[in-house]
Nucleic acid binder design. Sequence first.
RNA 1: UGCCCGGUAGCUCAGUGGCAGAGCAGGUGACUGUUAAUCACUUGGUCGCUGGUUCGAUCCCAGCCCGGGCAGCCA
Length: 487
Amino acid sequence: MRRFPCLPRGTVRASVHSKNSMSRTLIKDALNATAPNDAILLQGWVRTRRDAKTFSFLELNDGTCLKGIQVIADASLPNYAAEIARAHTGASVEVRGKLVESKGSGQKWEVVASEFKILGEADATYPLQKKGHTLEFLREIAHLRPRSNLFGAVFRVRSRLAFAVHQFFQSKNFIYVHTPIITASDAEGAGDMFRVTTLDLENPPRGEDKRVDATKDFFGKKTFLTVSGQLEGEIFATALSNVYTFGPTFRAENSNTSRHAAEFWMIEPEVAFCDLAGDMTLAEEFVKYLIRDAKEHCAADLEFFSKFVDKELLARLDFVLDKPFVRCSYTEAVEILEKSGKQWEHPVSWGANLQAEHERYLTEEHFKCPVTVYNYPRAIKAFYMRKTDGCAPDRQTVAAMDLLVPGIGEIIGGSQREERLAELREGMALHHLDEKAYWWYLDLRRYGSVPHAGFGLGFERMLMFVTGVSNIRDVIPFARTPGTADF
RNA sequence: UGCCCGGUAGCUCAGUGGCAGAGCAGGUGACUGUUAAUCACUUGGUCGCUGGUUCGAUCCCAGCCCGGGCAGCCA
């Protein structure tokens, strides 16, 4: 659909093939009208039809907002008998008529049709019914589910929040960096990677040792889909000061949970001249900004979620906005868990990773609030995290932090990075990494190194938190999970 | 990948070792400024697949496939 800049905001030229040039009004704008309108053109999909003796009610939705608009099609319309019978749920239609104040209750405006045309019929096999469907069923018809109330709302919020991500960082003078999707570094430690290759898998080139010869591959070496843009982000942070990435991320783990996907979108800010405390503050501000933005710009959609998905959603979002997030060191967290008197499936002890049950207890039961846990044992965290000064030898920690939220668990993971060359090399040795593969990363510490920190926010997990939708597959247009890459 | 639960009409589900059920959707009719309208009637089935037990299996057993939940991995 072509947009014409001369038209008022929200109007779109109906079609270059139209008999006349009346502009399309989006249903969102029609519902927000401040005055009646004698000539209006609506285009959208029929949600439901109710027939009276001498006319029909049609509820029309075009995805621009949650609500549909009520259209009155009178039996005196010349094509009424033929067309109205075809106006089933799901059909696409074009309506010309008058926007008038509704005689019925339940809506302010409605459209009395003077012309009514079915553009695309939807017969009885159309899978979306007026009744509610299970999320599992809707996943199987991911090509049609955006036409449902829930998924329309989810993807409107997704779009808005993606925009808000940029607004937040741009307003703080962060530079947006496009880090590569294809990467040759296979030891970032963030999980299994998808191999990228153009080699003939049936008959790959082999070296003298009979092993597949990766030097014959497209890039002359083994390559993978990125699991994180962080290392490249650090390159730009140590040049442009404040940067962020926002793009797709890939993990080839065989994870079958409601909060893992093989392809997801991650936001990774990286801040030069910043320590862990500053990193935690930025994370908290960021999360609150996104929530506030959704509440402001997606109010109707959020109300829908709180009515049909999670009754406590709005109260929880307000609560999160009102309170400062709790900050709790790993060592304190372990003490809390040990003193809780709970029977843990996974035992708690200093040095062991916090398990989901532990994280859930901290954020949902003990603090009842988002919690940032920081300073984790060095042995269980990544090589690039900054070694904490002055630790007891058997309790060495690094400046890592995880932001935990009720219902979802970890939504952000971040750290202050090790900026000291000697300590970084020590960390790499500890994790058995080959320095040669990271020569450029080490160079950042050789030349003008600065303290810096950053984190990764899982965009879909944030959407789950904001919408109350409890499965990650339902906040991604087309989810990629083990065994599933449909559409 | 491990543990657990499920798969019966288009959808949501009930059910039984012996003729396959309901609600909704669809169809027909009635009624109505209706709001997931209402009322009456009505069409609709490879009971996930394969094999086994049995006179007889949708039901019991085994294997497989698919979906979901939880755990691990993490964002």
